[in-house]
């Protein structure tokens, strides 16, 4: 059986810690994605130039409750619709556009959304894409840290 590359570390975990503890599903994978920390992102957003485009690729329910001001909701990266929205949104952008993706639906290692969205942009040839690293979730790692937040659609 050939497993997707993102599942291989999980197989090792399962072998080490017992079956049933870790699901064999693709999840956010630091090794294959360029990441940016919340602090770094805030510095970028407050700079006079070089602000990235921010796309939330997770749950709409989460986005409505709280999102990074200026970020756009594009749909869950784990769904065909979300990937289609993302492709449509970036269709006319230069390939070197600075883009930051984020989700924060659940712990980083379980996020089903950021990997597919990142991969889609890589396949389209975008060279300046990063994923916001949220270790636990958007609430704990962004809202509770006091970074600015917007609500609603």
């Amino acid at each position: 059986m050939r497993l997707p590359s993102c599942s291989r570390p999980l197989v090792i975990l399962v072998l080490l810690f017992g079956l049933g503890q870790v699901p064999l599903a693709c999840a956010a994978d630091n090794a294959s994605m360029k990441t940016i920390s919340p602090d770094e992102l805030v510095r970028l957003l407050t700079a006079k130039t070089g602000k990235p485009l921010l796309f939330q690729v997770g749950s709409h329910m989460l986005y409505v409750q709280a999102h990074i001001p200026g970020s756009e909701y594009l749909g869950a990266g784990s769904t065909p619709q979300g990937i289609q929205n993302l492709r449509g949104r970036v269709g006319t952008l230069p390939k070197n556009t600075s883009i930051v993706l984020y989700c924060g639906c659940c712990p980083w290692s379980h996020c089903p959304n950021v990997n597919p969205a990142y991969d889609a942009l890589q396949q389209l040839g975008f060279t300046n894409v990063k994923v916001l690293f949220l270790a636990n979730n958007f609430g704990a790692d962004w809202v509770d840290k006091g970074y600015s937040v917007a609500k609603g659609d």
Partner: peptide, 12 residues
């Protein structure tokens, strides 16, 4: 409802 419960900004 999520707001009433302090924000459900991550699951579970």
């Amino acid at each position: 409802l999520a707001d009433q419960y302090g924000g459900i900004l991550g699951l579970p």
